[in-house]
């Protein structure tokens, strides 16, 4: 188990210096959209908040921290890296994300963009204004830093003329829809997930087979996104199956404490994995954190896939 203060200090410093919670190049957030040449202005803006794109970098950071956790010397080195000697060394060590994970995240985002277009949803993309939402600051209780960051993100969005955003993951959705209003004066943005928009549009993708649904905690319990993905799957020809704990009583993948207590996090993921795979060997997720944590404990023959990909590859 890592010292929460140490991790908080590290994250807060990266956030202050770069606007990102881990060392990663800024363009990592919008590189996925370059081949798509999405419009830069429109009635709604796709705001990813960067969680999918940052997931591979966060994973690399967690692996590094895990190694540090193993030895006292490592912990001391980590403390020094965080507190004194610049973050350069640490940055070099973790700036090599898993290429497979990067490709996966980008394919999910392109999938989402494609589904929205085919559903007739008119939207633009923010490119360099697609900033990280700051969710980790909120989760770590770093309220001062979070307030500053949330206000900065909101200002940038408003300067860009944004009034309505489309979100793609539960954490960013929860931040923009339910948390930002408490931290940003005069906050006014319409926030919808791509799942809600596709459902409202009666979207039907070409897909098939069966899959068990793993509801993300925040969608199911805080944001009312429960039936929409089920309707989308069934309209698209996928038989959606339910684990024992689903909908509002869904069970966490363990991801949120991965950076602080990796072994406990894995135990939680295994419990959930056992429950899901008993129902189907194909598991639908809607969150990059759920994807990373569940796929890391998936036995052979069990596939963890994002909803956007289950609904069909882009262009299908």
């Amino acid at each position: 188990m890592l010292d929460p203060k140490l991790v908080s200090d590290l994250v807060a410093r990266y956030m202050r210096d770069t606007g990102l919670p881990v060392p990663a190049p800024k363009e990592a957030l919008y590189r996925w959209a370059e081949p798509l040449r999405l419009p830069r202005e429109g009635p709604r803006y796709l705001y990813t908040g960067g969680l999918y794109q940052l997931m591979p970098y966060i994973q690399a950071m967690v692996k590094y921290l895990e190694k540090m956790e193993e030895g006292r010397a490592g912990r001391l080195a980590l403390g020094l890296a965080g507190r004194l000697a610049g973050l350069g060394g640490l940055a070099k060590a973790v700036a090599r994300p898993d290429k497979g994970l990067v490709a996966y995240s980008e394919s999910v985002l392109r999938g989402i963009a494609g589904h929205l277009r085919r559903a007739g949803v008119e939207y633009a993309y923010l490119y360099e204004d697609d900033l990280y939402s700051g969710v980790i600051l909120h989760d770590l209780g770093l309220d001062e830093d979070f307030t500053r960051h949330a206000n900065m993100v909101y200002r940038r969005l408003r300067e860009r003329g944004v009034e309505s955003v489309i979100t793609v993951d539960p954490h960013t959705t929860h931040m923009l829809r339910s948390v930002y209003p408490k931290y940003v004066d005069g906050y006014s943005l319409e926030v919808k997930t791509y799942i809600e928009l596709l459902d409202e549009a009666g979207y039907q993708a070409k897909s098939g087979g069966e899959a068990v649904i793993h509801d993300p905690c925040l969608y199911a319990r805080f944001e009312g996104v429960v039936e929409q993905p089920r309707r989308l799957l069934s309209r698209s020809g996928v038989e959606a199956k339910e684990p024992r704990r689903s909908r509002r009583m869904t069970y966490c993948c363990g991801g949120p404490i991965e950076g602080l207590a990796p072994s406990l996090s894995k135990r939680i993921a295994r419990i959930r994995m056992d429950e899901l795979r008993r129902v189907s060997s194909r598991i639908v997720v809607m969150c990059p954190i759920c994807y990373a944590n569940l796929s890391s404990v998936a036995p052979e023959g069990v596939e963890v896939v994002d909803l956007a990909l289950v609904l069909g590859e882009p262009g299908a």
């Binding site: 929460p4 309220d143 319990r221 805080f222 991801g255 602080l260 207590a261």
Partner: peptide
């Protein structure tokens, strides 16, 4: 800091204590 913030406790509580929100406040 070991709390996942998953909100399952909030859902379980018969008297609707926003447990996960209070635990996040403890972190602050």
């Amino acid at each position: 800091f070991l709390c996942l913030g998953c909100g399952r406790c909030d859902e379980a509580c018969p008297v609707e204590i926003p447990l996960s929100r209070l635990i996040r406040w403890l972190k602050t």
